[in-house]
Write a protein that binds this DNA or RNA. Structure first.
Length: 116
DNA sequence: ATTGTGACGTTGC
DNA sequence: TGCAACGCCACAA
Protein backbone atom coordinates (compact mmCIF):
# COMPACT_ATOMS: atom_id res chain seq x y z
CA UNK A 1 0.00 0.00 0.00
CA UNK A 2 1.05 3.54 -0.43
CA UNK A 3 1.12 4.10 3.30
CA UNK A 4 -1.35 6.95 3.29
CA UNK A 5 -1.53 7.31 7.02
CA UNK A 6 0.52 5.54 9.61
CA UNK A 7 -1.54 2.84 11.16
CA UNK A 8 -0.99 3.73 14.76
CA UNK A 9 1.94 5.40 16.39
CA UNK A 10 2.64 8.05 13.78
CA UNK A 11 -0.89 9.24 13.43
CA UNK A 12 -1.23 9.25 17.16
CA UNK A 13 1.86 11.35 17.57
CA UNK A 14 0.63 13.83 15.01
CA UNK A 15 -2.59 14.19 16.90
CA UNK A 16 -0.80 15.07 20.10
CA UNK A 17 1.65 17.48 18.51
CA UNK A 18 -1.12 19.32 16.71
CA UNK A 19 -2.66 20.03 20.09
CA UNK A 20 0.38 21.93 21.26
CA UNK A 21 -0.83 25.52 21.71
CA UNK A 22 0.87 28.57 20.23
CA UNK A 23 3.96 29.65 22.08
CA UNK A 24 4.39 26.31 23.79
CA UNK A 25 6.64 23.32 23.21
CA UNK A 26 6.69 19.67 24.19
CA UNK A 27 9.18 16.86 24.34
CA UNK A 28 9.50 13.51 22.64
CA UNK A 29 9.60 11.67 25.90
CA UNK A 30 6.49 13.35 27.26
CA UNK A 31 4.56 12.48 24.13
CA UNK A 32 5.86 8.94 24.08
CA UNK A 33 4.88 8.49 27.68
CA UNK A 34 1.42 9.87 27.01
CA UNK A 35 1.04 7.27 24.30
CA UNK A 36 1.96 4.64 26.83
CA UNK A 37 5.28 3.85 25.18
CA UNK A 38 7.67 5.70 27.41
CA UNK A 39 10.61 3.84 25.97
CA UNK A 40 9.71 4.68 22.41
CA UNK A 41 10.61 8.34 22.63
CA UNK A 42 12.83 7.85 19.61
CA UNK A 43 9.86 6.76 17.59
CA UNK A 44 8.17 10.06 18.31
CA UNK A 45 11.07 11.81 16.68
CA UNK A 46 10.95 9.40 13.83
CA UNK A 47 7.27 10.05 13.43
CA UNK A 48 8.14 13.72 13.07
CA UNK A 49 10.34 12.69 10.22
CA UNK A 50 7.23 11.67 8.35
CA UNK A 51 5.19 14.50 9.80
CA UNK A 52 6.14 16.73 6.88
CA UNK A 53 3.86 14.74 4.65
CA UNK A 54 1.14 14.57 7.27
CA UNK A 55 -1.90 16.75 6.97
CA UNK A 56 -2.77 19.02 8.47
CA UNK A 57 0.83 20.03 8.89
CA UNK A 58 2.30 19.05 12.23
CA UNK A 59 4.13 21.78 14.18
CA UNK A 60 7.22 19.63 14.57
CA UNK A 61 9.16 22.74 15.51
CA UNK A 62 7.29 22.72 18.80
CA UNK A 63 8.76 19.35 19.71
CA UNK A 64 12.20 19.20 21.26
CA UNK A 65 14.13 16.84 23.45
CA UNK A 66 13.81 16.88 27.20
CA UNK A 67 16.62 19.42 27.56
CA UNK A 68 14.75 21.90 25.42
CA UNK A 69 17.32 21.73 22.66
CA UNK A 70 16.32 21.88 19.00
CA UNK A 71 17.81 18.54 18.21
CA UNK A 72 15.67 18.14 15.15
CA UNK A 73 16.37 21.49 13.55
CA UNK A 74 18.88 19.83 11.24
CA UNK A 75 16.02 17.92 9.68
CA UNK A 76 14.13 21.02 8.72
CA UNK A 77 14.32 22.33 5.17
CA UNK A 78 16.15 25.38 6.53
CA UNK A 79 19.04 25.30 9.02
CA UNK A 80 17.44 27.96 11.19
CA UNK A 81 13.81 27.45 10.26
CA UNK A 82 12.94 25.69 13.48
CA UNK A 83 14.50 28.39 15.61
CA UNK A 84 12.80 31.19 13.72
CA UNK A 85 9.45 29.48 13.92
CA UNK A 86 9.77 29.20 17.68
CA UNK A 87 10.95 32.78 18.12
CA UNK A 88 8.07 33.79 15.92
CA UNK A 89 5.82 32.39 18.61
CA UNK A 90 7.56 34.32 21.33
CA UNK A 91 9.86 31.50 22.40
CA UNK A 92 13.43 32.50 23.07
CA UNK A 93 15.95 30.24 21.46
CA UNK A 94 19.65 30.66 22.10
CA UNK A 95 22.27 28.33 20.72
CA UNK A 96 19.64 25.77 19.75
CA UNK A 97 18.33 25.76 23.28
CA UNK A 98 14.93 27.02 24.39
CA UNK A 99 15.02 29.61 27.16
CA UNK A 100 12.44 29.40 29.94
CA UNK A 101 11.87 25.87 28.77
CA UNK A 102 10.16 25.03 32.03
CA UNK A 103 7.62 27.79 31.35
CA UNK A 104 6.81 27.08 27.72
CA UNK A 105 6.89 23.36 28.25
CA UNK A 106 3.56 21.77 27.37
CA UNK A 107 3.00 18.35 28.83
CA UNK A 108 0.23 16.31 27.18
CA UNK A 109 -0.09 14.19 30.29
CA UNK A 110 -0.99 17.32 32.24
CA UNK A 111 -2.69 19.50 29.66
CA UNK A 112 -4.75 16.66 28.29
CA UNK A 113 -5.43 15.38 31.75
CA UNK A 114 -8.86 13.84 31.86
CA UNK A 115 -9.31 14.03 28.09
CA UNK A 116 -8.04 10.69 26.86
C1' DA B 1 10.72 -13.27 10.46
C1' DT B 2 15.42 -10.75 10.66
C1' DT B 3 18.28 -6.71 10.53
C1' DG B 4 19.25 -1.99 10.74
C1' DT B 5 18.19 2.30 12.40
C1' DG B 6 16.88 6.57 14.67
C1' DA B 7 14.50 14.55 15.48
C1' DC B 8 15.41 10.00 22.73
C1' DG B 9 16.15 8.91 27.66
C1' DT B 10 18.75 7.44 31.38
C1' DT B 11 22.95 6.38 33.77
C1' DG B 12 27.88 6.95 34.57
C1' DC B 13 32.18 9.73 34.43
C1' DT C 1 25.67 20.37 30.00
C1' DG C 2 29.43 17.25 27.45
C1' DC C 3 30.69 12.63 25.97
C1' DA C 4 30.16 7.45 25.97
C1' DA C 5 27.36 3.45 26.35
C1' DC C 6 23.10 0.84 26.85
C1' DG C 7 18.25 0.31 26.52
C1' DC C 8 14.14 0.57 24.28
C1' DC C 9 10.45 0.34 20.62
C1' DA C 10 8.12 0.95 16.17
C1' DC C 11 8.94 1.16 11.25
C1' DA C 12 11.28 0.19 6.58
C1' DA C 13 13.72 -2.87 3.43
Amino acid sequence: MESNQADGFFEWVYKIVRQIPYGRVSTYGAIARYLGSGGSARMVGWAMNASFKALPAVPAHRVVNRLGMLTGKAHFPGPNLMKELLENEGIKVINNQIQNFNIVFWDPMVELEGMQ
